[in-house]
């Protein structure tokens, strides 16, 4: 028998854990929602929590099943690529953090300047990592960054009148 996810025991194990975790968190949240609800259902109606509970139990059962399969198929990894180390997650992690900071930045600086700062930093960083930290290449980053800011101002704020923070 082969592990069901990409032939990889590691991925099957990870998926099983994720499913179980989501099931447990979901059921805990559902319990809180049920406790807070004072209403009643119509005759025949299985209630507002029925389908959610059913789906969460199915998810939990699938998670447990995947964990068992991962245990049974241990050592039969089909040579699936290993999950890379923290280095491979550094750039995605940095992007996520910078995107989480964007709403605050947009409120503080205004949308177009925030986009310009964000784009300049990221284009510079990626250009530096890709081609080396040559000043000639890095100098283009602010140009593209400011261009992105102007584009947002002209198209989204002026033309489409989106109420972006200004």
């Amino acid at each position: 028998m082969q592990p069901p996810i990409d032939g990889s025991t590691r991925k099957t194990l990870a998926a099983g854990l994720v499913f179980l975790l989501l099931c447990l968190v979901g059921l805990a949240m559902l319990g809180a929602s049920r406790a807070a609800w004072q209403g009643s259902s119509m005759p025949g109606d299985p209630g507002p929590f029925f389908l959610i509970r059913l789906c969460l139990w199915a998810t939990g059962a699938a998670g447990a099943g995947l964990l068992i399969l991962a245990a049974v198929t241990r050592g039969q990894d089909r040579g699936a690529p290993r999950v890379e180390g923290p280095g491979a997650l550094a750039l995605p992690g940095l992007l996520v953090l910078s995107l989480l900071a964007m709403p605050v930045l947009m409120k503080l600086l205004g949308s177009a300047p925030a986009v310009a700062v964000f784009a300049t930093l990221w284009i510079g960083l990626l250009a530096g990592l890709g081609h080396g930290w040559q000043p000639r290449r890095l100098i283009t980053a602010p140009l593209f960054g400011v261009g992105a800011g102007i584009f947002v101002q002209l198209v989204f704020v002026r033309l489409l009148s989106l109420p972006l923070p200004n």
Binding site: L99, F118, A119, L126, F144, V152
Partner: peptide, 15 residues
């Protein structure tokens, strides 16, 4: 350059 597109797309995603 894909990195240029990715930065612009990230901006589009936020907006």
């Amino acid at each position: 350059p894909p990195q240029l597109m990715q930065v612009f797309i990230a901006v589009f995603c936020v907006i």
